[in-house]
Amino acid sequence: MTTKPKSTTLAVLSRLVLALALAVFLPNCSKAEDEKLTVLVTGANRGLGLEHAKQWAAAGHKVIGTARKPEEAKELKATGATVLKLDITSDADIANLAKTLKGQKIDILLNNAGYMNRELNRESLQRCFDINTAGPLLLAEALKPNLKLSKQPKIVNVSSGLGSISRTNGIYTAYSISKAALNMATRQLHAQYGKEGFIVIALNPGHNKTDMGGDGAPLEPKDSVKQVLKLITGLKKEQSGRFWYIDGTEVPW
Rank of each mutant, 00 (worst) to 15 (best):
residue 82 T to P: 05
residue 143 L to I: 08
residue 20 L to A: 10
residue 211 D to R: 10
residue 142 A to M: 12
residue 171 I to R: 15
residue 80 G to Q: 07
residue 113 A to L: 06
residue 23 A to E: 00
residue 11 A to S: 12
residue 156 V to L: 03
residue 33 E to Y: 12
residue 113 A to S: 14
residue 191 A to K: 14
residue 136 P to R: 02
residue 10 L to W: 13
residue 163 G to R: 05
residue 128 C to P: 12
residue 158 V to H: 03
residue 180 A to G: 01
residue 64 I to M: 02
residue 73 A to Q: 03
residue 150 S to R: 11
residue 58 A to E: 12
residue 134 A to F: 11
residue 92 A to K: 14
residue 124 S to F: 05
residue 15 R to M: 04
residue 31 K to C: 07
residue 171 I to N: 13
residue 149 L to G: 00
residue 51 E to F: 12
residue 187 R to V: 07
residue 38 T to A: 09
residue 1 M to C: 02
residue 169 N to W: 07
residue 222 K to C: 10
residue 177 I to W: 05
residue 252 P to C: 02
residue 78 A to E: 09
residue 117 N to E: 14
residue 65 G to H: 12
residue 42 T to I: 03
residue 209 K to D: 09
residue 16 L to E: 04
residue 53 A to C: 13
residue 178 S to W: 04
residue 73 A to W: 10
residue 4 K to S: 12
residue 101 L to S: 06
residue 132 N to K: 10
residue 196 E to M: 15
residue 34 D to Q: 09
residue 185 A to G: 07
residue 70 P to L: 00
residue 219 L to A: 13
residue 181 A to W: 12
residue 71 E to F: 06
residue 216 G to W: 01
residue 11 A to I: 05
residue 108 I to A: 00
residue 235 L to Q: 12
residue 250 E to Y: 05
residue 217 A to C: 10
residue 118 R to W: 15
residue 62 K to A: 02
residue 72 E to C: 03
residue 189 L to Y: 03
residue 211 D to L: 15
residue 240 S to Q: 01
residue 116 M to I: 14
residue 102 K to C: 09
residue 199 I to S: 10
residue 49 G to K: 00
residue 151 K to S: 03
residue 180 A to T: 14
residue 67 A to Q: 02
residue 218 P to F: 08
residue 120 L to C: 15
residue 170 G to L: 00
residue 58 A to D: 11
residue 54 K to S: 09
residue 84 L to D: 03
residue 184 M to N: 04
residue 193 Y to H: 15
residue 66 T to A: 00
residue 187 R to I: 04
residue 140 A to C: 15
residue 184 M to T: 06
residue 150 S to C: 03
residue 144 K to V: 00
residue 32 A to G: 02
residue 248 G to I: 05
residue 246 I to R: 09
residue 83 V to A: 01
residue 88 I to Q: 11
residue 237 K to L: 02
residue 202 A to M: 11
residue 117 N to L: 08
residue 98 A to V: 10
residue 94 I to R: 04
residue 111 N to I: 07
